[in-house]
Simulated scan of single mutants.
Amino acid sequence: MQRLTISLDDKLADALDQMIRAQGYGNRSEALRDILRRHVEQSRVREDAESLHCVANLSYVYGHHARTLAERVMTLQHAHHDLTIASQHVHLDHDHCLESLMLKGPVQQVRAFAERLSAERGVRHGQLNLIPVAASHTEHAHPHLHPTS
């Protein structure tokens, strides 16, 4: 383990301390380690997306009465069945639904699928939460996925 010393202006240090209290971190070091891990992983995903695998959650809200939307979304999901682990559907009100898809696979394919689905007419508030993982192949037909850090 290495010890690093950083200097922060008072405003930034206060903001960090507020985040620590709000999120329940035990100390500044734990919070900063999480922030750095997140930043390193995001950079790695941007730079090395071709070779990385991920697990992800795509959540989106859509209008229940949008013409043919449910059929278009279902067709798109079936066309990418190899990326989909599970889905959950929630009725928010009479007119709106929330769908949450659990996905896994190559980062580029997952991201492309999420962007395509989120761009469907009638889909609103699409949000992808992508977590990079290491894929190791075994004698099984599918890869095993492990967190990278």
Rank of each mutant, 00 (worst) to 15 (best):
R38M: 03
R38L: 10
V40P: 05
V40D: 10
E41F: 12
Q42T: 05
Q42V: 00
S43M: 13
R44C: 07
R44F: 11
V45C: 04
V45A: 10
R46H: 09
A49N: 07
A49M: 05
E50D: 15
E50Y: 05
E50P: 00
S51W: 00
L52N: 08
H53C: 11
C54N: 06
C54K: 03
A56F: 10
N57D: 01
L58A: 06
L58T: 01
S59R: 04
Y60M: 05
V61K: 08
V61D: 05
Y62D: 02
Y62Q: 02
Y62W: 03
Y62F: 06
G63M: 08
H64S: 07
H64N: 07
H65L: 04
R67T: 08
T68W: 00
L69Y: 04
A70L: 05
E71G: 02
R72Q: 14
M74L: 14
L76R: 06
H81S: 15
D82T: 14
D82A: 15
L83W: 04
L83Y: 01
T84S: 12
T84G: 14
I85K: 08
I85M: 13
A86K: 11
S87Y: 03
S87W: 11
H89C: 04
H89R: 04
V90I: 15
H91Q: 12
L92S: 11
L92K: 12
L92T: 05
L92A: 10
D93T: 01
D93S: 11
H94N: 14
H96I: 01
C97V: 09
S100A: 14
S100V: 15
L101A: 06
L101H: 11
M102W: 08
M102F: 11
K104Q: 13
K104D: 03
G105C: 07
G105H: 02
G105P: 03
V107K: 04
V107M: 08
V107Y: 06
Q108T: 13
Q109D: 14
R111S: 10
R111E: 14
R111L: 08
F113M: 13
F113H: 09
F113P: 06
A114Y: 06
A114W: 01
R116W: 00
L117W: 02
A119V: 03
A119P: 04
A119L: 01
A119W: 07
E120Y: 07
E120F: 07
V123K: 06
V123R: 10
R124W: 07
R124N: 09
L128F: 08
